[in-house]
Design a protein around this nucleic acid. Structure first.
Lengths: 200, 200
DNA sequence: GTCTATAGTTGGATAGAC
DNA sequence: GTCTATCCAACTATAGAC
């Protein structure tokens, strides 16, 4: 293949690793498989990355930001009440999750893998905190547009929201029941909305 | 080692596999490691199980029932209101999860692994449905003791509860924040309790 | 039933030619 | 920078002695 600067090569390899891991699972994302997917030889990967863990760390970073961008920019909340705003955001988020089943599953695989390997520890934490940040951002947006204030800390509500979404997603990955998942999310949206107070 | 009937040998090997997988993660639970943990030679495992997947299926079954037994028999709910009953049950459950971090993590590892391997597919479904059944049982118990009826199907509430617990557990595995986890569970308990109506 | 020995794969990592 | 070739470790699985 052509001679690329290392930075670009790394980016290309991370993307290839993402493709493999999303499609076939994290344990299928071997150095060999990634090299094959990228169309380069085995040696190239080891030249661009210290070891497999460094590649995996980059994959963790990539999938986190990728997931996030799907949500932030696609959320056009028109001024309604808090319950409506939350529900709308959750609806958009859910459509995105549904369309990216493999990515959602990979996200959980990265979490469990990260929890067993100290060298990857940062991946799980990074993912979770990123999700909290996004939830916080959406909740802030919702509060503004619905002209309400949250009666407990936004951080706590963000935590609550992310936990709800993770739990619902996990069940959906297993049983594929979209209706049940939506019903559960709707119920949790009700709950979050109970923390809204008229803005002061 | 002594000559055991196959059934007992299998049971022993499944327990050994559980020990290894809980301690070091599912990917560390190789046939070799299990044999070593059980103090038998490699061949014995292959003699008792068709292949590694059959062993893993048994492990999935074992951890599921094991987790469940911890909850069902330890729940002495004294007649209070619905919110109190739910909260009490969640408290007991949470203590159990806290004391068995490795088992909880393994449970998620088994789920993701199962979702990538058709031969293990039943493990994830079995686990989830078992959890739903337990939640349903606890909710029924709570309703009786608190003299209330649930205003939506118990199945739906059970699903909601399990999702909440899974989401909270996952975050706790990552960040280890026990206070935040309890706060979140408490909040979800509030929500579940809003579905209680005076019994009729 | 249990053991040792070994076949047959696969994967991470490195060396060295180009 | 990129390739091929190779080393070495670890794994699943089986064969065959005891």
């Amino acid at each position: 293949m052509s001679r690329l600067p290392v930075a670009e090569r790394r980016e290309q390899l991370v993307q290839a690793a993402l493709v493999v891991a999303i499609r076939d699972g994290i344990e299928a994302a071997t150095v060999r498989a990634v090299a094959a997917e990228a169309g380069v030889s085995l040696g190239v990967v080891h030249y661009c990355f210290e070891d497999k863990n460094e590649l995996l760390r980059e994959v963790g970073l990539a999938i986190t930001t990728q997931n996030v961008e799907r949500i932030i920019f696609d959320t056009p909340m028109e001024g309604i009440n808090a319950r409506g705003a939350i529900s709308l955001a959750l609806g958009i988020l859910w459509d995105s999750i549904r369309e990216h089943r493999g990515a959602q599953l990979l996200s959980y695989e990265l979490t469990t893998t990260s929890l067993r390997h100290p060298e990857l520890r940062a991946v799980a934490i990074g993912q979770l905190e990123h999700n909290w940040d996004v939830a916080e951002h959406v909740l802030d947006q919702a509060a503004t547009l619905a002209a309400v204030a949250w009666s407990v800390s936004v951080r706590r509500l963000a935590r609550l929201s992310v936990a709800a979404i993770d739990g619902v997603s996990l069940a959906w990955l297993v049983d594929g029941d979209d209706d049940a998942a939506r019903a559960a999310l709707s119920s949790f949206a009700d709950h979050i909305a109970t923390y809204a107070r008229p803005a002061g």
